[in-house]
Design a protein around this nucleic acid. Structure first.
Lengths: 241, 241
DNA sequence: AAGTGGTCTAGACCACGTG
DNA sequence: ACGTGGTCTAGACCACTTG
């Protein structure tokens, strides 16, 4: 946890700030890479690292022979990319979020589905956590988590009521590095109907996540089942050429 | 359109091939950057460009002080990232896809919603295209496209029946460079009920896309409205640290 | 201590767009 | 012809992991 950061990241953050506050207006060109090299007293490759980050995150569009065009982000009220999280939802609705733990158990013999999803060996045991997320008195998300016990020796109801991730990262020093997600729409199960306030909705949006640790080992499978009216996903896709 | 490609891309493609066919097995370490520098007779920065691409596309996980771990992709039958396209859907169902053009019109005075979505000036005109996509006799996708006429002088029903994108790229030399997408679930409109075979489904998945050209100008807004059972989206998210 | 990836440099040549 | 971004090089030092 150091405060120091790399040179290209500080340049990136500086430019993001200037784009966000309008100092560099939309549709205009950024200074050329050569000029930025002078401005920031650094090498061109370092500038290019910063600009590539800007491009990947949707702030600029690089055009060969022309320059880097600032994309008009003001027209988009939504975040750059990703699932709109439970916390953001709660903030927007100005309501205190609440988490209910319905089940916390250690599965000694996981069934075929879970064994397959988590790529388990015969003797691996699995934590099963079932929680609902509540906003404004409505249970709108059902989270079903399955965690390989190999990486998580113990788990309590209190941890589940707060944030499992914080516990993993701060207490166990497990670092989540990436996840693969699949989004589909399904019919509600009887479990969905029982635990969620579906209020007449006939579908749920299901986000299936496979979560990996820093060493690329798969340790968690999660199904996050959302009431469809509270679901929103944002994607930013650069075209492959 | 040259066949030549950059050195780091050929290295990337070589490594992807070796990972896919198992020559470099999952969970194993890639040769170190130094070794790869020798193998491919190039500089380390070039190797690193190739490895960064592998990392971004979910093939490896780089760990400082340790090496690059090959991620087990065989366990995922789904593509690396993105919306599962109409064409892929049709292929999977072994069915001929069909496109029906329901409306093709030039809007002289766009309404407020479209003016806002496309950031139009007072005199901009807009092409409106409404199409359905049909697989196995079922109309499962309703596409509503709005294109700024400034960039697309003419448009015919025949073009819309095939691919508008191919027309734009091959005939008009317009290059689509990136898109921002938003995914939400909505109640079907009367238009959805009329044009799609909803078969009792009570929701539609709506993908709202803002499509930009190479020079970062916004030229198209599209709503792609899917029957929920035929919708699937895959995301690969590297964790920001 | 040795090996790994992360950052950074100061050059070089090339491909592309504009005047 | 000139300026732009795209690629590539041969070094250097640092931070981290492992023996």
């Amino acid at each position: 946890m150091s405060v120091v950061t790399s040179k290209y990241l500080t340049i990136y953050n500086t430019l993001v700030e200037q784009i966000k506050n309008g100092a560099i207006p939309p549709q205009s060109l950024l200074p050329s890479e050569h000029e930025l090299t002078d401005q920031f007293q650094t090498s061109r490759e370092t500038i290019r690292k910063a600009l590539n980050l800007l491009s990947q995150n949707g702030y600029i569009q690089k055009v060969r022979g022309k320059g880097s065009i600032v994309i008009d982000i003001t027209k988009f009220d939504f975040p750059v990319s990703g699932l709109v999280s439970f916390k953001e939802l709660a903030d927007k609705m100005e309501s205190k979020p609440k988490t209910n733990v319905h089940e916390l158990s250690l599965i000694i013999k996981p069934d075929h589905f879970i064994r397959q999803q988590l790529q388990l060996t015969a003797k691996d045991q699995v934590w099963k956590v079932i929680r609902t997320r509540e906003i404004g008195g409505n249970k709108i998300i059902l989270d079903k988590d399955f965690l390989n016990k190999k990486y998580v020796p113990s788990l309590t109801e209190e941890i589940c009521e707060n944030s499992i991730y914080e516990y993993l990262e701060n207490e166990l020093n497990l670092n989540i590095s990436f996840a693969k997600k699949e989004i589909v729409v399904e019919e509600p199960t009887s479990e969905d109907r029982e635990l969620l306030n579906l209020e007449g909705f006939h579908n749920v949006v299901v986000i299936k996540s496979y979560v990996f640790l820093e060493d690329a080992s798969l340790f968690q499978y999660t199904e996050s089942r959302h009431r469809p009216d509270k679901f929103r996903f944002v994607d930013f896709a650069r075209r492959k050429h």
